[in-house]
């Protein structure tokens, strides 16, 4: 028990809130596989299943940051593996532009990330989450785009 607490909390006690938009056909199944394979990975992500990474609206990303997410992950099928054949190619272009815009206004680089995780890559999903949480813990809570609501 003591060991679990140690891995879940660092010295500052900051636990990042991560919103993960996972494609229903690959990444969502990949996260399931990580779970059923009993892989240990940080539990900071709120998974939201979307039908395709191509259906990902930039509004979702901006809105998540506005509502206080410390990090946003978009994850879809590898290029060529899309259930809808080319949805992830559209996503790649769109997410690239969103990332450039967020960087330009000065949001920390590490807060927004995209990954390709297939349904068979439970271990990769665990690794992606682990890296993301580690990186965000280093930069601390997201305050720049967060709305100040009572």
């Amino acid at each position: 028990m003591a060991k679990v607490e140690q891995t879940a909390k660092d010295e500052t006690g900051f636990e990042p809130k991560i919103v993960a938009f996972l494609c229903k056909w690959c990444s969502s199944a990949g996260s399931d596989l990580a779970g059923v394979s009993r892989l240990q990975y940080p539990s900071n992500a709120v998974p939201i299943t979307i039908m395709c990474s191509g259906s990902m609206s930039p509004m979702f990303v901006l809105s998540a940051f506005n509502k206080g997410a410390d990090g946003v992950l978009v994850s879809g099928c590898h290029p060529g593996d899309c259930h809808y054949l080319k949805g992830n190619f559209y996503a790649r272009r769109k997410i690239y532009l969103v990332q450039k815009l967020l960087q330009f206004i000065g949001l920390e680089n590490d807060r927004f990330r995209m990954s390709w995780v297939s349904a068979a890559e439970g271990a990769k999903f665990a690794q992606v989450m682990h890296d993301f949480v580690t990186d965000i813990k280093k930069i601390g809570p997201q305050t720049r785009l967060k709305a100040k609501r009572p």
Partner: peptide
């Protein structure tokens, strides 16, 4: 990055409704 110049040709698909295999991929983990 995408060699796309808005307003150059009305027949061209728009930037976000098209893609190329050579679009940047290295930013994705």
């Amino acid at each position: 990055t995408f060699q796309y110049n808005p307003g150059s040709d009305p027949e061209l698909p728009t930037l976000t409704s098209s893609f190329r295999d050579t679009d940047p991929n290295s930013f994705i983990r």
